[in-house]
Nucleic acid binder design. Structure first.
Lengths: 225, 225
DNA sequence: TTCATACCTCGATCATAGCCGAAGCATATG
DNA sequence: CATATGCTTCGGCTATGATCGAGGTATGAA
């Protein structure tokens, strides 16, 4: 035994219901304060403080102090991807009781900071199919054709490329069990769609609602097959 | 709160050190008996029995009864992929103390039932680059050219295709942070390499050792760029 | 300054669950 | 048949850790 990294340490971190609720809430991508996360987890502020310190020590969340508030967010995209993988396992056991919100969640939702669900998979698959993106192993790269599309879409690739974060990244979708686009380009695409009023984000959950005009524009931009 | 599947339930399952050790041991791909797993976890048989029942109820492992033995294995490839993702997170926190065995683990190891590590990524990337495989989102498909290569390699694709398990599948490598080939083809390729005596599996760990002739043959079959 | 809010530390309580000894089935071997 | 092995259930012990109340320290507002 004792092979590879200590998997149980961080699995135990996610294994507590309160902490799992916090992490799930952070999957929406927005940074939240300690008290907001306490409410999300259903515990008092003191308890939440202890949990958040552990998550921080474990490297799962990052913290930014702003005045008397402390904003927490997921540390990086890998954490979000791992949480999605866990959700995939949990969902496969639990075929029963698909809540009312689940249908909307499966269709379109926020994953960390990018588009996920059926729509996210559709966008990624379409862009891959027409040659905007190229997938080589885990690495996803953008083609010149894709760069032209992004510019036309209103995304400033120059600004994104200069940042440290990877431009494109593959993320496994737990509901569709296929890949969708993460990375700074994925984030920018979602932001742009919000700017263009294609969709609206539910402030209290991860659900994304497409407006009727946005739905049409999306289907035209990323047609199925 | 209460969005999506209950992530904490199965994270807690992996979060116990004894159970994590068992799952890590099962990542080697071989089915193990309850007593073997007890030794692997460092607990008595009674304790192990309880743990294994929980893992089974959680859908993480499958069990096969054979005589007076009970053989346990990972339930399916998704479990292995999730464990790899967790290892990736745990490894990123723990840059310190890279044990002596870690170097060998990073180079080549068994992931559930297929080749992982630097060699696994190399094989996948090479096959993708020369057009043996095609990656469309999470789905990986084999091309006619790839089918010809597989036949030449000594893999019976007909037999694999008839099985229920997917032929090709992408699995994220925790040490390389890139994709390697899973699925029944990934399993068959590793088996074939073992048959051809390219490599030898350490019976007590996940480490794979390439023999000198096998190393040369591998580099010729899957050259870097 | 005074007050309120956001967050943290300390200490005590309490429940969960991991652990093992003992004993009980089931299956193989002699 | 008797005996050994593999696995399980039961009961009790124990420790870990989640929880909250009380009290303390920053930050911002009045």
């Amino acid at each position: 035994m004792k092979e590879g990294p200590d998997i149980s340490r961080i699995a135990a971190l996610i294994g507590d219901p309160a902490r799992a609720n916090m992490l799930t809430a952070l999957m929406a991508g927005k940074a939240l304060t300690a008290t907001e996360l306490a409410a999300e987890a259903g515990v008092t502020a003191q308890t939440a403080s202890g949990h958040l310190a552990k998550l921080r020590d474990g490297g799962l969340v990052q913290v930014r102090k702003q005045g008397r508030h402390k904003y927490f967010a997921l540390a990086h995209g890998d954490v979000a991807a791992t949480l999605e993988a866990l959700m995939g396992l949990a969902a496969s056991e639990l075929r029963t009781r698909t809540g009312p919100k689940d249908a909307a969640m499966r269709q379109a939702r926020v994953c960390y900071n990018h588009l996920a669900g059926q729509r996210g998979v559709q966008m990624f698959s379409c862009m891959l199919g027409r040659g905007d993106l190229r997938e080589d192993g885990e690495d996803v790269t953008i083609t010149p054709q894709g760069a032209a599309f992004a510019a036309d879409f209103g995304v400033d690739l120059e600004a994104l490329s200069s940042a440290r974060a990877p431009l494109c990244r593959a993320c496994l979708d737990w509901s569709e069990r296929r890949t969708h686009l993460a990375g700074s380009l994925g984030r920018a695409m979602l932001t742009r769609m919000e700017e263009m009023r294609w969709l609206r984000r539910d402030p209290d959950s991860r659900v994304i609602a497409f407006l009727s005009t946005g739905e049409m524009a999306f289907q035209q931009a990323f047609p199925l097959d």
